[in-house]
């Protein structure tokens, strides 16, 4: 194993453990887009785990900022207008497709869900296409 793969593997394993904890303890799938989307109009009993889970995610972000600031370094900055377009696509698309990298990519693929495998292949290919088109258009932020 080469060194560059150690951090992604360890990080991935932590993600897998986190998803396992949420499933074993709370009975919930650790899909971020689903956890956020379900907050809109959530009933009282359905809100707590979402708020706690997302709160933990943000506190984890603060912990990273303090302990490992390089993890949050942004060396990639498309224009703000493009970031807004991307955000809208990600927000709307994940709700339409019922999941994102975590819900489909990690949890669904782990359960060998056909829907999630199709979704994961689709968003990786669509992402690659977006990068390819950006390159062809000479996007300066790609470096």
């Amino acid at each position: 194993m080469t060194a560059p793969l150690v951090a992604p593997l360890v990080g991935g394993a932590l993600i897998g453990l986190a998803a396992t904890l949420l499933l074993v303890a709370n009975g919930r799938v650790a899909g971020i887009s689903g956890a956020v989307g379900g907050l809109f109009g959530a009933r009282a009993g359905d809100r707590e785990w979402r708020v706690s889970f997302l709160g933990g995610l943000l506190v984890g972000g603060v912990a990273l900022a303090l302990l490992r600031p390089s993890a949050l370094r942004v060396e990639y900055a498309p224009p703000a207008a493009l970031a807004v377009v991307a955000g809208l696509l990600v927000g709307f698309g994940t709700q339409l497709g019922n999941g994102c990298t975590s819900g489909h990519g990690v949890c669904g693929v782990s359960r060998r869900s056909t829907r999630s495998i199709v979704a994961t292949i689709t968003f990786i290919l669509a992402g690659a296409l977006a990068v390819l088109v950006s390159r062809r258009l000479g996007a300066p932020w790609l470096g």
């Binding site: 809208l88 696509l89 709307f92 698309g93 497709g97 968003f123 977006a130």
Partner: peptide, 11 residues
């Protein structure tokens, strides 16, 4: 939905 998400992710 996954395709829209992927494009936003790639951008």
């Amino acid at each position: 939905g996954s395709a829209l998400f992927g494009v936003g992710w790639g951008i």
